[in-house]
Write a protein that binds this DNA or RNA. Structure first.
Lengths: 205, 205
DNA sequence: CTGTGACTGGTACATTTGTCCCAATCGGAC
DNA sequence: GTCCGATTGGGACAAATGTACCAGTCACAG
C-alpha cells in the first residue's frame, strides 16, 4: 500500500522544498500551484493531491522553515562551560551569519511569516512558537556567559540580531558581517558587560 | 481643463490611501484593482485611468509611506539643545511609539517594502533612501545627546528599534512600550553611555 | 450656443488562478 | 495470473484578475 500522504513521501517533501524556493525567490504571493509544480518538476495535480489547498502547502512550508530555524538556535545555544564576552560575540556572530548563509530563502520566509502572523490567525501559533524558541535559545546562550542579567540581555540581543538580519536582507552589503554585525554585537555585549551601577536602575525588574 | 493626472487629484490620492489601507489590512498581495477601487468607493476603471498598471499604484503607495516615515524621523530628530540619556530614551520611545500608533498599516507596508526591496530592483532605491534617512535622523538625535560615538550608537539603536517594531507588529502585546521597549532602550542607552573600557566617565561634554 | 478635452462609470475580454475529475500506471496481496 | 488501492499525469472548469474599451458627463474656451 501507499502511505495515505500522512507523513513521508518524496513528492510531498519535494513540493514543500519547491515552495520554499519560490518564496525565497519571489515572495509568498508568487506561490501558486503551477509555480510550485513547475519548480518541483511534477505535474500540477500533485499539488492538490498531497495538499488540500494552497494554504495548507504554504503553512507546511513555513512550518518547516521555523523548525529548521529552531534547530539552528538550539545548536548555537549549546555551549560547553562558561564563555567570556569575546566568545559570546563570536557565537552570536556565527549564529547570525549562519542564518544569512543558508541562502536567503529561509530567512525571507521567516520574515514573511512574521508579517503574515500579524494578521492570519492560522499562522499566529507558529510565529509565537518560533519567537519563544528564539528567545529561549539566546537566553541560554547568554546565561552561559559572564554577562549579568541574562534575560533582558538576551531579549535585547535577539531584537538586535533580528533587525540586523532584516537590514542585510533588504539592502545587502558584502562586508556586512565584519564591518557592521560584529562591531555592533561587540559594542552591545561589551557595553552590557560593564557594571553600570545599580543606582540608576530601570523602573522595571 | 483637468490636470492630466500629473500630480494632484482627489481620486488619485484617495486611491493611494485606499491601497495603503488594503496593504495594512491584508498585505501587498491582496492589492487588486477591484479591492482598491471598492475600498476607495470608486469604480474599477478609475484605477486604470490614474495608474498605468497595478505596479505603479503599489509603488506610489509605498513611496508615500516612506515619505511620511522620513518626515516622522525628521520631526523626532529635531531637538533644541543638548539632551541627557533619560531624555534620549524618552525621545526614542516616543519615536517608536509614534510608528506603532499611527495604525499598523504604514508600518506593515514599510516592512513589506523592505522584503520586496530584497528582490525587486524597482523598489530598491526607495528602500535605500528610506534606510539612509532613518539612520541619518537617529544619528542627529544621538549626536545631540551626551553619548560618545554617535554614529555607531545610532546604528545600533536604529537596528534595535527596527527589530522591536517588527516583533510588536508580529506578536502584539498590550504593555509592549512600557514593559519591553522602554526598558530595552534604557538598557541600551545607559550601557552605551558608559565608557567603553576606561575608568568612570565624565558624561558631560 | 457649440465644441473639446478631462473625467466618469459600466462592461468586455483574455489570462491566470485554485480546484476538480478521470483515465492510465504501478506495486504488492490474493 | 487477477485485483485493488495508492499514485500519476493530463486536462477541464469556474472564479478572479489585469487591462482595454466606450458611451456618457461636466467645465470651460471659442
Amino acid at each position: 500500500m501507499g502511505q495515505r500522504h500522512g507523513a513521508m513521501s518524496d513528492r510531498r517533501e519535494e513540493l514543500v522544498e519547491a515552495t520554499l524556493r519560490v518564496i525565497g525567490r519571489s515572495g509568498v504571493d508568487a506561490v501558486t500551484h503551477r509555480a510550485v509544480a513547475a519548480e518541483a518538476g511534477v505535474p500540477l495535480a500533485a499539488t492538490t493531491y498531497y495538499f488540500g489547498s494552497k494554504d495548507e502547502l504554504v503553512c507546511e512550508a513555513l512550518a518547516l522553515v521555523i523548525d529548521r530555524s529552531m534547530e539552528l538556535v538550539t545548536r548555537f545555544a549549546r555551549v560547553d562551560g562558561e564563555i567570556d564576552c569575546a566568545q559570546l560575540v563570536d557565537r552570536l556572530t556565527e549564529f547570525a551569519e549562519a542564518q544569512l548563509d543558508d541562502q536567503r530563502a529561509p530567512l525571507i520566509a521567516q520574515f514573511e511569516l512574521m508579517l503574515e502572523g500579524a494578521r492570519r490567525s492560522r499562522l499566529r501559533p507558529l510565529a509565537e512558537r518560533w519567537s519563544a524558541a528564539y528567545l529561549e535559545g539566546l537566553t541560554a546562550l547568554v546565561g552561559a556567559s559572564t554577562l549579568p542579567d541574562p534575560a533582558p540581555a538576551a531579549q535585547l540581543l535577539s531584537t538586535l540580531i533580528e533587525g540586523a538580519l532584516l537590514d542585510q536582507l533588504s539592502l545587502p552589503r558584502h562586508d556586512f558581517v565584519e564591518m557592521e554585525l560584529r562591531p555592533m554585537l561587540t559594542r552591545a555585549v561589551r557595553a552590557m558587560a560593564a557594571p553600570t551601577g545599580r543606582a540608576a536602575a530601570t523602573s522595571s525588574e
